[in-house]
Design a protein around this nucleic acid. Structure first.
Lengths: 244, 244
DNA sequence: CGATTTATTGAAGAAACTCAACTCGAGTGG
DNA sequence: CCACTCGAGTTGAGTTTCTTCAATAAATCG
């Protein structure tokens, strides 16, 4: 879609890049690969020597517990760097799955480390990316722990809508979001049956449509109000900030 | 207790420090302050210009939702750097409270940034610290989302036990952990009443004691087995790893 | 078009919550 | 030194939200 280097979209979200920095990023080699829907990208325990940007598709980080239950911990949308962690943490502590067909762009850790060493502001920017991700995890603890089911699902949709917007993936109030109801259940720690019923309620209230792999928000204020959603935790204002 | 610089214990957990690096850390100025139990350390929305190490006590990160519910997102024990985030994220996205009387050691962001610029390995080490914290959040999503109440509480105790061990705070199988049952309820997203009953069950099974501000694990294998606990997500093996 | 997901519906059941009272121990001040 | 208060912990009982199970409908895919 865009001829841009796969790391640039995310970096631009957290930092105003200088021309030299853009050039430095563009010198980082990468290799495009595809992963089919419902295939693993990385498994818990893996020790990657490269990280990747998700260019197209939808992926998730998840863990299995002993009784077979699965918790989705994060949803990854285009532009995201779902495995930045492995740049500094040897071993993966959760699975990474493609929820739909995905296009990935892999970068060797070696090259990323070179980039970080040569460009301290980019090093900081990547650290920031991981800190924002961390903030999202915190909000998910709150979401799963404290909010009743309808607010919980609504909150998830709000987050997706805002992040899709930030990734430039919203057109006409709607975006591609091909999660299944089972996926939503695993992300919100609800049963699939309950997700189905709550979804019907959200639709009945005229807040959103969610079908055929698309999410359309019909009433943002209503949805965000119901969900108790504030976008602070996504730290959207980073670009304009000082860097060391 | 220890005459060591307050940043050293945590850094040593993620990196083998050279003498020069130790010296560089020791040059970072800090200022000790106390915060009384149940007092805020930092509020959501704050824009700190310094970070701190928790030297003594117990603190938590938490968020309030609209209906008044409170979720504890993280527990901070001695040695932790609970507000490292603010070094790169302007605005705090959750509260930080002292659960008991705490001793903090504050470092100006300016000085930390200088340290990071001068010592790339320490920069990486601090990034790692924040990544491990992030991994703990992921596990909390799983804990709150997937585990039934007894396993959930057991898992929290396992985590505390292991982290206290890593901080050198376990003596004779027991450690100071002065959380109240209400605190545990907010950390596990259970009602206080239910926490009380589940605690009784854990004691009845002879797995642990938790009273008078102390946690004692009587049967580690039993507790860890019940909790489905594996310590991978704490990334305890980092010290021995390569750094760029 | 048959096969396989995915979505939907109904009904019974369980885990955990709420509410309210009560106990206990540690201070505190008369 | 004892009565009092206050926070923390404990107990009982009724209620709710959400789960589970099982069956059916609809949609998607080869």
């Amino acid at each position: 879609v865009t001829p841009e280097h796969p790391l640039l979209p995310k970096l631009r979200q957290v930092l105003e890049l200088s021309p030299e920095e853009v050039a430095a990023v563009e010198r980082v080699p990468f290799r495009r690969e595809r992963v089919a829907a419902d295939e693993p990208i990385l498994r818990e325990g893996a020790r990657p020597t490269r990280s990747f940007a998700l260019e197209e598709g939808l992926a998730c980080s998840s863990k299995i517990v002993s009784d077979g239950g699965r918790q989705i911990i994060a949803l990854h949308i285009p532009g995201d760097l779902p495995d930045l962690t492995s740049l500094h943490l040897r071993q993966r502590d959760c699975d990474l799955w493609a929820l739909v067909d995905c296009e990935l762009a892999f970068h060797d850790h070696r090259d990323l480390q070179q980039l970080c060493a040569a460009q301290p502001r980019l090093n900081t920017a990547l650290w920031r990316v991981s800190l924002v991700e961390s903030s999202v995890f915190r909000e998910w603890v709150v979401n799963v722990g404290q909010r009743e089911s309808i607010k919980r699902l609504a909150h998830l949709f709000c987050e997706i809508a805002v992040r899709m917007q930030g990734a430039g993936r919203v057109t006409g109030g709607s975006c591609a979001f091909a999660a299944t109801q089972d996926d939503l259940a695993e992300a919100t720690a609800m049963s699939p049956v309950h997700v189905n019923r709550v979804l019907q309620e959200l639709r009945r209230r005229g807040l959103l449509s969610f079908a055929k792999g698309r999410l359309t928000v019909h009433n943002w204020d209503g949805l965000a109000g119901l969900a108790d959603f504030r976008d602070d935790y996504l730290h959207l204002d980073l670009r304009s900030e000082r860097t060391a």
